[in-house]
Design a protein around this nucleic acid. Structure first.
Lengths: 195, 195
DNA sequence: GTCTATAGATCGATAGAC
DNA sequence: GTCTATCGATCTATAGAC
Protein backbone atom coordinates (compact mmCIF):
# COMPACT_ATOMS: atom_id res chain seq x y z
CA UNK A 1 0.00 0.00 0.00
CA UNK A 2 1.45 3.29 -1.13
CA UNK A 3 2.37 5.81 1.53
CA UNK A 4 0.64 9.15 1.54
CA UNK A 5 2.28 12.42 0.72
CA UNK A 6 5.13 13.51 2.94
CA UNK A 7 5.65 10.25 4.75
CA UNK A 8 9.23 9.54 5.74
CA UNK A 9 9.03 5.77 6.20
CA UNK A 10 7.92 6.11 9.81
CA UNK A 11 11.19 7.54 11.09
CA UNK A 12 9.85 10.98 11.94
CA UNK A 13 8.75 9.88 15.41
CA UNK A 14 12.21 8.75 16.51
CA UNK A 15 13.79 11.81 14.95
CA UNK A 16 11.45 14.07 16.91
CA UNK A 17 12.37 12.36 20.16
CA UNK A 18 16.06 12.53 19.33
CA UNK A 19 15.84 16.24 18.58
CA UNK A 20 13.81 16.92 21.72
CA UNK A 21 16.28 14.94 23.81
CA UNK A 22 19.20 16.97 22.55
CA UNK A 23 17.51 20.35 22.78
CA UNK A 24 15.94 19.76 26.20
CA UNK A 25 19.32 18.67 27.55
CA UNK A 26 21.11 21.67 26.08
CA UNK A 27 18.67 24.48 26.80
CA UNK A 28 16.10 23.05 29.21
CA UNK A 29 12.52 21.95 28.57
CA UNK A 30 10.94 25.32 29.26
CA UNK A 31 13.40 27.18 27.04
CA UNK A 32 12.83 24.98 23.98
CA UNK A 33 9.87 25.64 21.70
CA UNK A 34 8.03 23.11 19.59
CA UNK A 35 9.09 25.17 16.58
CA UNK A 36 12.77 24.63 17.45
CA UNK A 37 12.25 20.89 17.66
CA UNK A 38 10.39 20.88 14.36
CA UNK A 39 13.12 22.88 12.68
CA UNK A 40 15.80 20.43 13.82
CA UNK A 41 13.76 17.54 12.43
CA UNK A 42 12.99 19.38 9.21
CA UNK A 43 9.20 19.56 9.49
CA UNK A 44 6.71 22.24 10.42
CA UNK A 45 5.62 22.65 14.02
CA UNK A 46 2.11 21.35 13.39
CA UNK A 47 3.47 18.01 12.21
CA UNK A 48 4.86 17.24 15.67
CA UNK A 49 1.33 16.79 16.96
CA UNK A 50 0.95 13.66 14.86
CA UNK A 51 3.45 12.07 17.25
CA UNK A 52 2.74 13.60 20.62
CA UNK A 53 -0.48 15.01 22.06
CA UNK A 54 1.49 17.87 23.63
CA UNK A 55 4.91 19.05 24.79
CA UNK A 56 4.51 17.63 28.28
CA UNK A 57 3.92 14.11 26.95
CA UNK A 58 7.03 14.41 24.82
CA UNK A 59 9.12 15.16 27.91
CA UNK A 60 7.51 12.40 29.92
CA UNK A 61 8.07 9.80 27.23
CA UNK A 62 11.78 10.67 27.03
CA UNK A 63 12.21 10.34 30.78
CA UNK A 64 10.13 7.18 31.11
CA UNK A 65 11.97 5.48 28.26
CA UNK A 66 15.30 6.33 29.85
CA UNK A 67 14.32 4.99 33.26
CA UNK A 68 12.86 1.77 31.84
CA UNK A 69 15.96 1.18 29.74
CA UNK A 70 18.09 1.72 32.84
CA UNK A 71 16.13 -0.82 34.87
CA UNK A 72 16.08 -3.32 32.00
CA UNK A 73 19.82 -2.97 31.43
CA UNK A 74 20.61 -3.53 35.10
CA UNK A 75 18.32 -6.58 35.19
CA UNK A 76 20.12 -7.91 32.11
CA UNK A 77 23.47 -7.34 33.79
CA UNK A 78 22.51 -10.10 36.22
CA UNK A 79 25.05 -9.24 38.93
CA UNK A 80 26.12 -12.32 40.88
CA UNK A 81 28.61 -13.26 43.56
CA UNK A 82 28.95 -11.79 47.02
CA UNK A 83 27.87 -8.26 47.92
CA UNK A 84 31.30 -6.84 47.14
CA UNK A 85 31.27 -8.29 43.62
CA UNK A 86 27.71 -7.12 43.07
CA UNK A 87 28.57 -3.61 44.24
CA UNK A 88 31.50 -3.49 41.85
CA UNK A 89 29.20 -4.60 39.05
CA UNK A 90 26.76 -1.86 39.98
CA UNK A 91 29.39 0.89 40.07
CA UNK A 92 30.85 -0.02 36.69
CA UNK A 93 27.42 -0.58 35.16
CA UNK A 94 26.12 2.76 36.42
CA UNK A 95 29.07 4.73 35.11
CA UNK A 96 29.09 3.00 31.75
CA UNK A 97 25.33 3.16 31.16
CA UNK A 98 25.05 6.81 32.11
CA UNK A 99 28.10 7.92 30.16
CA UNK A 100 26.51 6.49 27.03
CA UNK A 101 23.37 8.64 27.44
CA UNK A 102 24.45 11.99 28.84
CA UNK A 103 21.47 13.88 27.41
CA UNK A 104 18.86 11.46 28.76
CA UNK A 105 20.56 11.41 32.16
CA UNK A 106 20.66 15.17 32.30
CA UNK A 107 16.97 15.46 31.47
CA UNK A 108 15.94 12.74 33.89
CA UNK A 109 17.56 14.67 36.75
CA UNK A 110 16.96 18.27 35.74
CA UNK A 111 13.46 18.31 34.32
CA UNK A 112 11.57 16.58 37.12
CA UNK A 113 10.04 19.89 38.15
CA UNK A 114 8.59 20.37 34.68
CA UNK A 115 6.55 17.18 34.89
CA UNK A 116 2.93 17.44 35.90
CA UNK A 117 2.05 15.67 39.11
CA UNK A 118 0.89 12.41 37.61
CA UNK A 119 3.97 12.07 35.42
CA UNK A 120 6.27 13.06 38.28
CA UNK A 121 4.90 10.27 40.46
CA UNK A 122 5.50 7.76 37.67
CA UNK A 123 9.13 8.76 37.11
CA UNK A 124 9.88 8.87 40.82
CA UNK A 125 8.58 5.34 41.22
CA UNK A 126 10.96 4.12 38.54
CA UNK A 127 13.88 5.96 40.09
CA UNK A 128 13.02 4.47 43.44
CA UNK A 129 13.17 0.98 41.98
CA UNK A 130 16.70 1.65 40.77
CA UNK A 131 17.80 3.00 44.15
CA UNK A 132 16.27 -0.02 45.84
CA UNK A 133 18.40 -2.32 43.69
CA UNK A 134 21.54 -0.69 45.04
CA UNK A 135 20.27 -0.54 48.61
CA UNK A 136 19.54 -4.27 48.55
CA UNK A 137 23.18 -4.93 47.67
CA UNK A 138 24.33 -2.75 50.55
CA UNK A 139 21.91 -4.43 52.96
CA UNK A 140 23.13 -7.87 51.90
CA UNK A 141 26.69 -6.75 52.42
CA UNK A 142 25.95 -5.44 55.89
CA UNK A 143 24.14 -8.67 56.81
CA UNK A 144 27.06 -10.81 55.66
CA UNK A 145 29.57 -8.59 57.45
CA UNK A 146 31.03 -7.55 54.10
CA UNK A 147 30.30 -3.81 54.56
CA UNK A 148 30.26 -1.43 57.50
CA UNK A 149 27.53 1.12 56.83
CA UNK A 150 25.73 3.10 59.51
CA UNK A 151 22.71 3.88 57.26
CA UNK A 152 22.10 1.98 54.02
CA UNK A 153 19.52 4.47 52.74
CA UNK A 154 21.91 7.40 53.02
CA UNK A 155 24.76 5.34 51.64
CA UNK A 156 22.64 4.41 48.63
CA UNK A 157 21.91 8.02 47.81
CA UNK A 158 25.48 9.07 48.52
CA UNK A 159 26.94 6.45 46.17
CA UNK A 160 24.56 7.35 43.35
CA UNK A 161 25.21 11.07 43.84
CA UNK A 162 28.95 10.49 43.76
CA UNK A 163 28.76 8.37 40.61
CA UNK A 164 26.49 10.85 38.86
CA UNK A 165 29.15 13.47 39.41
CA UNK A 166 31.21 11.75 36.72
CA UNK A 167 28.98 13.17 34.05
CA UNK A 168 29.66 16.75 35.04
CA UNK A 169 33.31 16.49 34.11
CA UNK A 170 34.22 13.34 32.17
CA UNK A 171 34.87 13.75 28.47
CA UNK A 172 36.04 10.84 26.34
CA UNK A 173 39.49 11.41 24.96
CA UNK A 174 40.52 13.20 28.14
CA UNK A 175 43.21 12.37 30.66
CA UNK A 176 41.62 9.14 31.80
CA UNK A 177 39.94 6.26 29.98
CA UNK A 178 36.49 5.15 31.04
CA UNK A 179 38.03 1.99 32.54
CA UNK A 180 40.40 4.07 34.64
CA UNK A 181 37.53 6.26 35.82
CA UNK A 182 35.52 3.19 36.78
CA UNK A 183 38.55 1.94 38.72
CA UNK A 184 39.03 5.18 40.64
CA UNK A 185 35.36 5.47 41.56
CA UNK A 186 35.10 1.80 42.49
CA UNK A 187 38.05 2.22 44.83
CA UNK A 188 36.39 5.21 46.53
CA UNK A 189 33.02 3.48 46.81
CA UNK A 190 34.59 0.28 48.13
CA UNK A 191 36.44 2.16 50.84
CA UNK A 192 33.44 4.34 51.69
CA UNK A 193 31.30 1.30 52.50
CA UNK A 194 34.14 -0.31 54.44
CA UNK A 195 34.46 -3.23 52.02
CA UNK B 1 14.27 64.30 52.14
CA UNK B 2 10.81 62.94 51.46
CA UNK B 3 10.58 59.85 49.36
CA UNK B 4 8.68 59.98 46.11
CA UNK B 5 5.43 58.24 45.43
CA UNK B 6 5.41 54.47 45.76
CA UNK B 7 8.77 54.11 47.42
CA UNK B 8 9.01 51.25 49.88
CA UNK B 9 12.01 52.34 51.92
CA UNK B 10 14.45 50.78 49.50
CA UNK B 11 13.51 47.21 50.28
CA UNK B 12 11.99 46.43 46.91
CA UNK B 13 15.36 45.35 45.47
CA UNK B 14 15.96 42.62 48.05
CA UNK B 15 12.36 41.49 47.80
CA UNK B 16 12.68 41.12 44.05
CA UNK B 17 15.79 39.00 44.44
CA UNK B 18 14.14 36.89 47.13
CA UNK B 19 11.10 36.29 44.95
CA UNK B 20 13.22 35.47 41.91
CA UNK B 21 15.34 33.07 43.96
CA UNK B 22 12.31 31.18 45.16
CA UNK B 23 10.53 31.08 41.82
CA UNK B 24 13.61 30.18 39.76
CA UNK B 25 14.38 27.34 42.17
CA UNK B 26 10.84 26.03 42.07
CA UNK B 27 9.97 26.32 38.40
CA UNK B 28 13.23 27.05 36.61
CA UNK B 29 14.55 30.30 35.16
CA UNK B 30 13.04 29.85 31.71
CA UNK B 31 9.63 28.92 33.09
CA UNK B 32 9.31 31.99 35.33
CA UNK B 33 8.11 35.28 33.86
CA UNK B 34 8.98 38.75 35.05
CA UNK B 35 5.27 39.21 35.69
CA UNK B 36 5.25 36.31 38.14
CA UNK B 37 8.18 37.80 40.03
CA UNK B 38 6.49 41.20 40.12
CA UNK B 39 3.24 39.68 41.34
CA UNK B 40 5.02 37.94 44.22
CA UNK B 41 6.67 41.21 45.21
CA UNK B 42 3.48 43.17 44.83
CA UNK B 43 4.53 45.56 42.07
CA UNK B 44 3.90 45.80 38.35
CA UNK B 45 6.30 44.12 35.92
CA UNK B 46 7.72 47.39 34.64
CA UNK B 47 8.94 48.34 38.11
CA UNK B 48 11.40 45.44 38.14
CA UNK B 49 13.49 47.22 35.55
CA UNK B 50 14.40 49.86 38.09
CA UNK B 51 16.45 47.14 39.80
CA UNK B 52 17.79 44.97 37.03
CA UNK B 53 18.58 45.79 33.39
CA UNK B 54 17.07 42.48 32.32
CA UNK B 55 16.09 38.99 33.41
CA UNK B 56 19.52 37.52 32.61
CA UNK B 57 21.28 39.94 34.94
CA UNK B 58 18.84 39.05 37.70
CA UNK B 59 19.80 35.38 37.39
CA UNK B 60 23.49 36.14 37.24
CA UNK B 61 23.39 38.32 40.31
CA UNK B 62 21.67 35.61 42.32
CA UNK B 63 24.26 33.03 41.32
CA UNK B 64 27.24 35.32 41.78
CA UNK B 65 26.07 36.43 45.22
CA UNK B 66 25.64 32.82 46.27
CA UNK B 67 29.10 31.80 45.09
CA UNK B 68 30.81 34.79 46.71
CA UNK B 69 29.00 34.16 49.99
CA UNK B 70 30.12 30.54 49.82
CA UNK B 71 33.77 31.47 49.31
CA UNK B 72 33.64 34.16 51.99
CA UNK B 73 32.03 31.82 54.50
CA UNK B 74 34.64 29.13 53.90
CA UNK B 75 37.44 31.68 54.26
CA UNK B 76 35.84 32.84 57.51
CA UNK B 77 35.67 29.24 58.73
CA UNK B 78 39.48 29.31 58.83
CA UNK B 79 40.00 25.56 58.93
CA UNK B 80 43.15 24.61 60.78
CA UNK B 81 44.96 21.52 61.97
CA UNK B 82 46.12 18.58 59.89
CA UNK B 83 44.53 17.58 56.59
CA UNK B 84 42.12 15.20 58.28
CA UNK B 85 40.81 17.93 60.59
CA UNK B 86 40.55 20.37 57.71
CA UNK B 87 38.65 17.84 55.62
CA UNK B 88 36.21 17.26 58.45
CA UNK B 89 35.73 21.03 58.73
CA UNK B 90 35.07 21.20 55.01
CA UNK B 91 32.52 18.39 54.99
CA UNK B 92 30.54 19.83 57.90
CA UNK B 93 30.81 23.36 56.57
CA UNK B 94 29.66 22.35 53.10
CA UNK B 95 26.62 20.44 54.35
CA UNK B 96 25.62 23.15 56.80
CA UNK B 97 26.11 26.08 54.44
CA UNK B 98 24.25 24.45 51.59
CA UNK B 99 21.37 23.18 53.70
CA UNK B 100 20.72 26.75 54.79
CA UNK B 101 20.31 27.95 51.19
CA UNK B 102 18.58 25.19 49.25
CA UNK B 103 17.10 27.55 46.65
CA UNK B 104 20.38 29.31 45.88
CA UNK B 105 22.21 25.99 45.68
CA UNK B 106 19.62 24.57 43.35
CA UNK B 107 19.85 27.55 41.03
CA UNK B 108 23.64 27.64 41.07
CA UNK B 109 23.76 24.07 39.80
CA UNK B 110 20.70 23.91 37.55
CA UNK B 111 20.66 27.22 35.76
CA UNK B 112 24.22 27.35 34.44
CA UNK B 113 22.96 26.62 30.95
CA UNK B 114 20.72 29.66 31.07
CA UNK B 115 23.64 32.03 31.61
CA UNK B 116 25.07 33.80 28.62
CA UNK B 117 28.67 32.99 27.83
CA UNK B 118 30.28 35.85 29.72
CA UNK B 119 28.26 35.22 32.86
CA UNK B 120 28.86 31.48 32.63
CA UNK B 121 32.61 31.98 32.59
CA UNK B 122 32.38 34.18 35.67
CA UNK B 123 30.36 31.68 37.70
CA UNK B 124 32.53 28.77 36.65
CA UNK B 125 35.63 30.61 37.85
CA UNK B 126 34.07 31.06 41.28
CA UNK B 127 33.03 27.45 41.45
CA UNK B 128 36.54 26.42 40.46
CA UNK B 129 37.99 28.42 43.35
CA UNK B 130 35.79 26.51 45.77
CA UNK B 131 36.78 23.16 44.31
CA UNK B 132 40.44 24.17 44.51
CA UNK B 133 40.06 24.84 48.23
CA UNK B 134 38.99 21.25 48.77
CA UNK B 135 41.58 19.82 46.41
CA UNK B 136 44.34 21.63 48.29
CA UNK B 137 43.27 19.87 51.48
CA UNK B 138 43.34 16.53 49.72
CA UNK B 139 46.76 17.25 48.20
CA UNK B 140 48.15 18.24 51.60
CA UNK B 141 46.77 15.05 53.07
CA UNK B 142 48.34 12.93 50.35
CA UNK B 143 51.70 14.69 50.80
CA UNK B 144 51.65 14.11 54.56
CA UNK B 145 50.63 10.49 54.13
CA UNK B 146 47.31 11.24 55.78
CA UNK B 147 45.19 10.20 52.76
CA UNK B 148 45.48 7.55 50.08
CA UNK B 149 43.95 9.02 46.92
CA UNK B 150 44.83 7.90 43.40
CA UNK B 151 43.59 11.16 41.81
CA UNK B 152 42.93 14.28 43.89
CA UNK B 153 41.00 16.04 41.10
CA UNK B 154 38.50 13.21 40.74
CA UNK B 155 38.31 12.79 44.50
CA UNK B 156 37.51 16.50 44.86
CA UNK B 157 34.62 16.30 42.44
CA UNK B 158 33.42 13.00 43.87
CA UNK B 159 33.32 14.36 47.42
CA UNK B 160 31.43 17.49 46.40
CA UNK B 161 28.99 15.48 44.29
CA UNK B 162 28.37 13.13 47.19
CA UNK B 163 27.80 15.94 49.65
CA UNK B 164 25.49 17.80 47.27
CA UNK B 165 23.34 14.70 47.19
CA UNK B 166 22.21 15.54 50.72
CA UNK B 167 20.03 18.30 49.40
CA UNK B 168 17.99 16.01 47.20
CA UNK B 169 16.59 14.11 50.15
CA UNK B 170 17.26 15.79 53.52
CA UNK B 171 14.34 17.54 55.18
CA UNK B 172 14.68 19.05 58.63
CA UNK B 173 12.44 17.33 61.12
CA UNK B 174 13.02 14.00 59.41
CA UNK B 175 14.56 10.82 60.71
CA UNK B 176 18.03 12.31 61.23
CA UNK B 177 19.27 15.59 62.66
CA UNK B 178 21.67 17.70 60.67
CA UNK B 179 24.46 16.73 63.06
CA UNK B 180 23.77 13.06 62.49
CA UNK B 181 23.78 13.58 58.74
CA UNK B 182 27.10 15.41 58.96
CA UNK B 183 28.46 12.49 60.98
CA UNK B 184 27.33 9.87 58.49
CA UNK B 185 28.72 11.74 55.51
CA UNK B 186 31.97 12.56 57.26
CA UNK B 187 32.44 8.88 58.02
CA UNK B 188 31.93 7.97 54.36
CA UNK B 189 34.23 10.72 53.09
CA UNK B 190 36.92 9.86 55.62
CA UNK B 191 36.94 6.24 54.59
CA UNK B 192 36.75 7.04 50.89
CA UNK B 193 39.98 9.06 51.05
CA UNK B 194 41.64 6.40 53.16
CA UNK B 195 41.97 8.71 56.18
C1' DG C 1 9.93 54.60 42.13
C1' DT C 2 5.78 52.87 40.48
C1' DC C 3 2.10 53.05 37.53
C1' DT C 4 -0.58 52.05 32.95
C1' DA C 5 -0.26 50.88 28.37
C1' DT C 6 1.74 48.84 24.68
C1' DA C 7 5.19 47.55 21.10
C1' DG C 8 6.90 43.61 18.99
C1' DA C 9 7.98 38.96 19.27
C1' DT C 10 7.04 34.21 20.28
C1' DC C 11 4.58 30.64 22.34
C1' DG C 12 1.45 25.95 22.32
C1' DA C 13 -1.92 24.08 19.91
C1' DT C 14 -5.56 23.61 16.25
C1' DA C 15 -8.08 23.72 11.55
C1' DG C 16 -8.39 22.48 7.08
C1' DA C 17 -6.18 21.73 2.41
C1' DC C 18 -3.66 18.31 -0.05
C1' DG D 1 1.54 12.71 7.35
C1' DT D 2 2.78 17.24 6.34
C1' DC D 3 1.64 21.60 4.93
C1' DT D 4 0.05 26.72 5.59
C1' DA D 5 -2.33 29.77 8.32
C1' DT D 6 -3.91 31.36 12.44
C1' DC D 7 -6.10 31.85 17.18
C1' DG D 8 -5.47 33.41 21.63
C1' DA D 9 -2.32 33.78 25.15
C1' DT D 10 1.93 35.20 27.00
C1' DC D 11 6.45 37.00 26.94
C1' DT D 12 10.47 40.77 27.64
C1' DA D 13 11.23 45.25 27.62
C1' DT D 14 10.14 50.15 26.97
C1' DA D 15 7.62 54.85 27.04
C1' DG D 16 5.56 58.32 29.39
C1' DA D 17 2.36 59.97 33.17
C1' DC D 18 2.40 60.97 38.02
Amino acid sequence: MARTQGSHSGITGPRIRAAALRLFAQHGYAAVSMRQIAKEVGVQAGALYNYTPDKQSLLFRLMETHMRELLAAWAQEGASGDALAQLKSFVCFHIRFHMERPDAVFIAYMELRNLNEENFVGIEALRRRYEDALEQILKDGVASGCFRIPDTKIATLAVIAMLNGVMTWYRSGGRLSLEEVEGVYWEMVRKAVGG
